[in-house]
Design a binder for these strands. Sequence first.
DNA 1: GGAGTTCTTGACCGTGCGGTCCACCATAAG
DNA 2: CTTATGGTGGACCGCACGGTCAAGAACTCC
Lengths: 218, 218
Amino acid sequence: MRSTISMVDRTVKNPYPVRMARPRSFDEKQVLNAVREQFWDAGYAATSLEDLMRVSGLGKGSLYAAFGDKRQLFLRALHSYTDDSHGHLRKALSEAPRALDALRMLLEAPIDDPTGAGTRRGCLMANSTCELGNADPEVLDHAHRTYETSTALIGDCVARAQREGDLPAGADPIALARALLAAQQGLVFMSRTGLDTATLTATARSLAAQLLPDHSGD
Amino acid sequence: MRSTISMVDRTVKNPYPVRMARPRSFDEKQVLNAVREQFWDAGYAATSLEDLMRVSGLGKGSLYAAFGDKRQLFLRALHSYTDDSHGHLRKALSEAPRALDALRMLLEAPIDDPTGAGTRRGCLMANSTCELGNADPEVLDHAHRTYETSTALIGDCVARAQREGDLPAGADPIALARALLAAQQGLVFMSRTGLDTATLTATARSLAAQLLPDHSGD
DNA sequence: GGAGTTCTTGACCGTGCGGTCCACCATAAG
DNA sequence: CTTATGGTGGACCGCACGGTCAAGAACTCC
């Protein structure tokens, strides 16, 4: 029942790839990216395992062995999405020469066409919340924490803009951050309905102008 | 092959309920309401025919005979939703003593708990767009037209507020309407993530204050 | 090379789905 | 009452889905 001869100490000497054997023929990150795109395009329910196999190039067995069932795979993809989003957000907010510019970009950037498809398919996190929020508490909870993190990041940037004299110093940074986030989500959503880019851009500028009034002259 | 004796002229004399026979045992409107609630709670894909039978109290045959397949039933429910929404919007915007109050309510009202559940389940039109927008052009198109109508209604109200001296006269009513609609959608969406009501209300007030500055003193 | 282990492939399974159909019912007209 | 007609309910169907499994391939270590 206990140690059947060998297969024992190996975990001690080389715990991670216990014995190695056949290596994986795929890159987990790439698979996760492909799967994420698929979920993003079609949503959770409308994505079948066959779709996931197609876009990942893996068989069912490999997918299940590596990620568990469909839901877990989806959650992994969702987490990778929010992680990346926060990475980009952090970068954009910190690298901008002036914090105010970064905040304005927050509203206008989603309109631009980075990959050609633009924001026509919206935000994966938002889509997932809409589709699964009522049914899957874990998705809802993740959404909640994600938006809290975003709020904090934006709040920091607002505070910086205040220190740089570009925004009124009196306002609560977090409150403004929430307003900006709501405005951005609203814009991304309206883009989903097929509103033309010009109108969308104009609306973004209008919101930016009213939520982020130029204060540099003070 | 042609006229088998009777069954002929009846359509001429009484074309609508041709022969009447057994009348329907359900009210189409009530069924549509029940079905709409179900789709609203669970989304399109996550709602099974069994769910629809349960909430409507009808058998499959009756549902299919009356509404066609699941998708058509959904579209009917969606249209009834947007029709009602526009009705409420029209009423709220026209009945308010001052247009500015109505516009503020636009942002703050969704937070209040009208039915107890509040906006935790969001807006059916928005949810549907997120879930089906990429796959069903008809849903997308309906979303587009719906938001255009909403924009027009809100734009009218903005114009009225301008005439009443509560908003700066120079601004484009439609542009402000779009900004307000985006802000509202963003708020409703953030409410879906489980943000507490107090924070939500504060954000709504903050947005209202910045997008609808008090101009009555001018 | 042999042994051991993991990864891969794809056939297979049970289930629950959307959708169809038909026997039965309730009603209106004659 | 009889007859025609549309409504009703549920049995039934085929299918595609998510998920399992076993046999073989690929690799490391000895």
